[in-house]
Design a protein around this nucleic acid. Structure first.
Lengths: 204, 204
DNA sequence: CAGCATTGTTGTCGATGCCTACATTGGGGT
DNA sequence: ACCCCAATGTAGGCATCGACAACAATGCTG
């Protein structure tokens, strides 16, 4: 069958890059309407394919969500790496830059962040996601290691120190994503937040 | 009509306290199988009522989830209040006690916590939930206020300082709930975490 | 150029959320 | 004491969804 039956822009039966198209569309509705509004069938309709077509690329709805999450980590890691492009700056500036990048991501992709940290993944994707998380933490690990070497950060288990910093920022991100904290406000006070984190809440 | 037709434990048509029974059952399956496995119909089956009965008590599935979240805040606030029953103790002990209570709750109710901080609530329940959140934060606010008065905590906007502490713990809780962090490990290192939070990451 | 794996389609099934109409119950007003 | 009504539970139906199976079109590979 040649293509082009005249009127309704007949796609060439094989979409060409359906998987990517589905992910794009899914990311869009995820951002605009939240994860609850994501349906494979509507996704298929929006993309102009039949309701079973997505099944060829994602064995499950969960598989699609996992792929979205994985893609989210890619972008987050990219953002973090870009933000920490000046390893010679003083500690507080580096940390603030990382924090700004992370919270910026959270502000612009709240539903995606929710997905990324949801605790429901196909067992075989779990390790992929785990390494993605590790790469995110990697930016902080690197920062802490550098700073410890220069004596800018307290000695001690670097993992624990990284966790303190990362948990603090993740908490902010989660509060923003959950609308429990105003995004503008959080971003405005970020530098002071980082300062308190580095210098402690107790008077010196 | 008289109750007790002999064989199939015929409920007295009116359950008596269906709403509470539904919440109990829902909380159970939430804990055991996660929020994704919650269905109003199955809930009705488990409780021995018809599939439309829950609709009399919760206009929506979301309304049920909101009620669960609200109940979660009740229990969390109770736990926090109990944990902070010794306001005369030194700051670090008080903070550690609060942290332990919060993380304990997170460890034992991960799915519920996820629900509590999810960003999808009926508009009219939003304010109820907001005040519940405020009451949770209240424990920390009080702690910070007391400590500032005694000079145990740096001066400055108490809200910001509370936010730094709360975000740090909330981040830990979220990581635990998301299985990104081992619960035992987090609890074991909690005291040191609090110490770092209070004393800062920079050397003194 | 022929066969086969890939990718997309149609049809179907069971489950779910929600709605409407109906049944039962118990309490409040007279 | 009684009757009516609001509250509560039931039965049925509808649209949608996710998953599966059988079939069709396509294009790569030998």
């Amino acid at each position: 069958m040649m293509r082009m039956s005249p009127s309704p822009a007949s796609r060439p039966y094989h979409h060409g890059d359906l998987r990517a198209a589905l992910l794009r569309s899914a990311e869009r509705t995820l951002r605009e309407k939240g994860v609850g509004a994501l349906s494979l069938r509507e996704l298929a309709r929006d993309t102009g394919v039949s309701h079973a077509a997505p099944g060829r690329h994602f064995k499950d709805k969960q598989a699609l969500l996992d792929a979205l999450a994985l893609d989210g980590y890619e972008r987050l890691n990219q953002a973090l790496a870009t933000a920490d492009a000046h390893p010679d700056r003083p500690l507080e500036q580096r940390m603030a830059a990382l924090a700004r990048a992370y919270l910026g991501f959270a502000v612009e992709n709240p539903a995606l962040l929710e997905l990324m940290f949801a605790r429901k993944h196909e067992p075989d994707r779990t390790d992929q996601l785990a390494t993605a998380v590790d790469r995110s933490l990697g930016s902080f690990t690197q920062l802490v290691a550098d700073a410890q070497e220069r004596g800018e950060i307290v000695p001690g288990d670097p993992e624990r120190i990284t966790l303190v910093a990362a948990a603090s920022l993740h908490g902010l991100a989660a509060l923003i994503a959950g609308c429990a904290l105003d995004a503008e406000e959080a971003l405005a006070g970020l530098d002071e937040h980082v300062h308190l984190l580095l210098h402690g809440l107790r008077p010196r």
